[in-house]
Write a protein that binds this DNA or RNA. Structure first.
Lengths: 232, 232
DNA sequence: TCACGAACGAGAGCACCGCTCTCGCCCACG
DNA sequence: CGTGGGCGAGAGCGGTGCTCTCGTTCGTGA
């Protein structure tokens, strides 16, 4: 029933996409705070009130862009993993995924900021965002899972004993992995984005100049921290 | 000459402080994007144009708040280090500083977001911010330096060989420390804020529930990654 | 001492914003 | 074929950052 929708529905999809495209363009040049419904409408030859036929509010437009951005960075990570799949070591896959996420962030800094930077502390993300938001994390988990299950090359790498609460959290998130690996995985997930955020926000200016090799090295160390690198 | 300034100068200082206080209050309740000059003026019983006698623009007000926030979190880190100074192991000092930074961030989420989150990708921070912004990093460096120089307990912990550029960067930043330690230090610096940002932004919701022990564990692992933990 | 000038607050006003409401139009479905 | 609902246009509301002008106040240098 959805294959050949009426012209009405098709037009709606097209206009919605055009609005998002124009909004993304303004996002890239001006940033999220400067994104203006009126400017988007103006650029599209519409009047501002017409946009409200497609998005109930400016925040809903932003939410749509957020979901798209989560999907885009998640897909970048998944494609990087797929490209590395055969015969690459877990550490090599990990690094490739990290580099892909970083590359996407540097190519779309404002969209990356939108999802990982400027979030409002009090604000609870709408339910539709949680799925797309999890994709990068799931890619990282899958690398560890493959390494642990398939070839069994990921030993629990940690010397510091875990608290009981951490054990429980690990059992909930990924019961098939050693708790220490799960905890390290979650931490590495956040730390990866710390590295990228600092680079995107310019915190490394005058501190790290050759950021590409620095990042690669840090990503490899993260892989080590999760136990993806075999002791030599 | 500056001890007993005229009454006008004192009034100016007081009004400036009152503006910043009210702005901080609104920042805490509404967030940076909703901070309104007119609302601040209204609350202070002034008219909006009067604020421009004290801050040339809204962005300059925000810059002032940014500097204050950098100083506040830097001071929190420095005080945590000072409190731990005597007889504490380098790893214990490291963890204490990390926990102090996190505690400040959780207590002032909007101010933390202002300095580490919502930064505009294209925007270059004014020169006045670089000093205050460096304070937390310098505290971390000082811990590693004390450990390396004073007691020599920080062995270069890394197995992956460094690139030549990384060696050069390390020599510029802290020539008295082993390059591998400097590189790990910079990465740990960014990763620490990745952990805190994810917690402040709610990325750990439904993922990490007992965040305090999780963070402490992650901070200890970061100390390990810099070489602050002696091999058992 | 006193006049000058700088700093100050008030107010009006500009251009822009998000959002609402009403109004005609026109297409698709019953 | 008639009609109801989706649509775009337009006016308008209250808000924003920022500018300019105009009296007033108050410290300071002559």
């Amino acid at each position: 029933m959805s294959t050949v929708q009426g012209a009405r529905a098709r037009a709606r999809i097209e206009v919605t996409a055009a609005i998002k495209d124009e909004a993304r363009k303004q996002l890239a040049t001006e940033g999220a705070t400067k994104l203006s419904l009126r400017a988007v409408a103006r650029e599209l030859g519409m009047v501002s009130s017409a946009l409200y036929r497609y998005f109930p509010s400016r925040d809903d437009l932003l939410t749509a862009l957020i979901i798209d951005a989560y999907d885009a960075v998640g897909e970048a990570a998944e494609q990087a993993l797929a490209k590395q799949r055969k015969a690459a070591s877990p550490a090599a896959r990990w690094t490739a995924v990290c580099r892909a996420v970083r590359a996407w962030a540097l190519a779309h800094p404002h969209e990356f900021t939108l999802i990982y930077g400027s979030s409002v502390p009090g604000y609870t993300a709408p339910q539709e965002t949680v799925g797309p938001a999890a994709r990068v994390g799931l890619v990282l988990v899958s690398i560890a899972r493959d390494a642990h299950h398939g070839k069994g090359i990921a030993p629990p790498p940690l010397a510091v004993p875990l608290r009981a609460e951490a054990e429980r959290m690990a059992a909930e998130l990924a019961p098939d992995l050693p708790p220490a690996v799960v905890v390290a995985l979650v931490a590495a997930w956040a730390q990866l984005f710390g590295l990228i955020l600092f680079e995107v926000f310019g915190q490394f200016r005058r501190v790290v100049e050759d950021r590409d090799p620095f990042f690669t090295h840090a990503a490899e160390q993260l892989a080590r921290s999760v136990g993806l690198v075999l002791p030599a």
